[in-house]
Simulated assay, not measured.
Amino acid sequence: MADKKAATLPRKPYERELLRLQTELVKLQEWVRAEGARLVVVFEGRDAAGKGGTIKRVAEHLNPRVARIVALPKPTERQRTQWYFQRYTEHLPAAGEIVLFDRSWYNRAGVEHVMGFCTKQEYQLFLRQCPIYERMLVEEGIVLRKYWFSVSDAVQEDRFRRRLDDPVRRWKLSPMDLESITHWEAYSRAKDEMLVHTDIAEAPWFIVESDDKRRARLNMIAHLLGSLPYHDVPPPVLELPKRPPSMGYERPPRDLQTYVPDHAASL
């Protein structure tokens, strides 16, 4: 435990660098919008590997009309009869948009395969089709970045225990998450097999060491920024107009409207 604490990036330099990188992400956003680029970022990894926290920091200061997070629930009965990639394709970006996939089509290579939610034939078909699908995306002009967040078994278990005792994060845990502890090696083999088939030149995988969440967030964002040819787009010139003189408007009496009680006054 002492070694893990020693490796943790101190909060002050972390927050300082995070703000700098988030400022650059805003510049990236404006470049994507100005250039009509289409950016897809895939976040994958084991449960409690730090994907959600990183996505939150990436999107924190971005315009939700430009950058959106896609976290799909389990497929409906109708979707189960569709081509596997179909429901993900619906969420791909148009020109000037960024899509952050909080888990993605790689569910089939991970949880679906390990937990038996797909057949062996469906799994093998995915491994054959996935590289073709991603090459099609890249050929179409979509910029695709794929990040795998790697966490050790001890750190994952520690994070699970912390979530169990945290009332505001307890919702992050499901029975399926906890089962991942007992299927650790199966998930490891599935990840290795996935990388063999889908770590392609057109859309390579980038591994993010995430035992230290702060380092993982900074490293991932810095890598994403460094991998793209974005540049500063000058913002439009804006001037705050002068407020015109009053035309006699009078606000209605306060007792005619219902106000939220001042809960803060009780603190």
Rank of each mutant, 00 (worst) to 15 (best):
1 M>R: 15
1 M>L: 15
12 K>D: 15
14 Y>E: 10
14 Y>G: 05
15 E>T: 08
15 E>G: 12
17 E>N: 06
28 L>G: 13
28 L>Q: 12
29 Q>A: 13
33 R>E: 02
33 R>G: 03
35 E>S: 10
36 G>C: 03
40 V>F: 01
41 V>Q: 03
43 F>M: 14
44 E>F: 04
47 D>I: 07
50 G>R: 06
54 T>F: 05
58 V>L: 13
59 A>W: 07
60 E>M: 05
63 N>L: 02
63 N>E: 00
64 P>M: 11
67 A>D: 07
72 L>W: 05
74 K>N: 00
74 K>G: 02
76 T>W: 04
77 E>P: 01
79 Q>M: 08
79 Q>K: 00
85 F>L: 08
86 Q>E: 12
86 Q>M: 06
87 R>C: 06
87 R>N: 08
89 T>R: 03
90 E>T: 12
93 P>Y: 09
97 E>S: 13
99 V>S: 12
103 R>A: 11
103 R>T: 02
104 S>Y: 08
108 R>S: 06
111 V>C: 01
112 E>C: 04
113 H>M: 03
114 V>H: 03
115 M>N: 06
116 G>V: 07
119 T>Y: 00
126 F>V: 01
127 L>H: 13
128 R>I: 01
129 Q>L: 09
131 P>L: 09
132 I>A: 07
133 Y>A: 13
136 M>I: 08
137 L>T: 01
141 G>V: 00
146 K>Q: 06
148 W>L: 08
148 W>M: 01
148 W>K: 02
148 W>D: 03
148 W>P: 03
149 F>E: 11
150 S>Y: 07
155 V>W: 04
157 E>M: 08
161 R>S: 06
162 R>Y: 04
163 R>M: 10
168 V>H: 12
169 R>I: 03
170 R>M: 13
173 L>N: 04
174 S>T: 15
182 T>P: 00
182 T>D: 14
184 W>M: 01
189 R>G: 04
191 K>H: 06
193 E>I: 00
196 V>L: 13
196 V>M: 13
199 D>G: 10
200 I>E: 10
200 I>Q: 13
202 E>N: 09
204 P>Q: 10
213 K>L: 03
215 R>K: 15
217 R>D: 02
218 L>F: 12
221 I>A: 07
224 L>K: 08
226 G>N: 13
231 H>R: 15
234 P>R: 09
234 P>W: 11
236 P>C: 12
243 R>P: 00
246 S>T: 14
247 M>W: 02
248 G>Q: 11
252 P>C: 13
257 Q>F: 14
261 P>G: 07
262 D>F: 07
263 H>Y: 14
266 S>V: 09
266 S>E: 00
267 L>I: 05
